[in-house]
């Protein structure tokens, strides 16, 4: 069996981080949402109800990205796994899981619509601006969002592993400078209306593509950083 696949299997020896905990978070946060909705007085229940509980799992994936590197990379070295195999196996596994969750989100969105917002006229999964797109775009968007959060965690962890706190600091400052630079650029050129229009014009698909490109950038950066990292 290929060592990349073995890395994925190693990450799954303990079922909790990649499978158990996300499922528990998903179920628990959704049930909690329903519970809160049920407790709301009738007056507050008029109109549509929204919940961000669907995001809870996504934020967990940020932590998972950090954890899957810091906990497992030093061990994978002792298992005589190349950094490349570790990288491909771990990211591959996460991509498969993210795809599974994206499809699950889409299906839950369908259920949500069919049941009149779970009987509460609520929105957890089928958020209006996303669910108006076709299935492929919806799944793509969820997938990209999950992978992006995971990659941010994973990349930050590789930077920390290789350059410790100073690396993270430099990366953080660099990122802040980049954002501020862009803000300054927009302000100086009085370009905010155009920027606003650009965002407004960007549909879910466009946003997915931009975020996807960010994922690719982070993935490439992580690999180059990891290649010379020592556990």
């Amino acid at each position: 069996m290929n060592r990349v696949v073995k890395v994925a299997r190693m990450q799954l020896i303990n079922k909790w981080p990649f499978l158990g905990i996300p499922m528990v978070i998903l179920v628990a946060s959704t049930l909690m949402t329903f519970g809160i909705w049920a407790l709301l007085p009738a007056s507050a229940r008029e109109g549509e109800l929204y919940s961000g509980s669907g995001q809870a799992v996504m934020w967990y994936f940020l932590a998972l990205g950090i954890q899957s590197l810091t906990y497992t990379f030093p061990f994978s070295q002792a298992m005589s796994v190349s950094r490349r195999s570790f990288y491909l196996g771990t990211l591959g596994l996460f991509a498969a899981i993210a795809l599974g969750f994206s499809i699950l989100y889409y299906l839950l969105g369908l259920v949500e619509k069919a049941t009149g917002g779970w009987g509460f006229n609520g929105q957890v999964f089928a958020l209006g601006w996303i669910s108006q797109n076709n299935a492929a775009i919806q799944i793509l968007f969820y997938f990209v969002a999950m992978v992006l959060l995971f990659m941010i965690g994973f990349w930050a962890a590789t930077v920390y592993m290789r350059w410790k706190a100073s690396g993270l600091l430099v990366a953080g400052i660099g990122f802040a400078v980049l954002v501020l630079g862009m803000v300054a650029l927009a302000t100086l050129n009085d370009a905010w209306p155009q920027v606003g229009a650009w965002f407004a014009a960007m549909q879910v698909l466009g946003l997915s593509i931009v975020l996807g490109m960010l994922c690719v950038l982070l993935a490439g950066g992580s690999y180059l950083t990891l290649r010379r990292a020592t556990a």
Binding site: M10, I13, N14, P74, F75, A78, M79
Partner: peptide, 24 residues
């Protein structure tokens, strides 16, 4: 090569570490 201060996944038991080693 097992380092003197080898690190293991935080939530692993020895049983799970051996399972991983059997894979590789």
């Amino acid at each position: 090569f097992i380092r003197e201060s080898q690190r293991y996944p935080d939530d692993f038991s020895p049983h799970q570490a051996f399972k991983a080693a059997a894979l590789f």
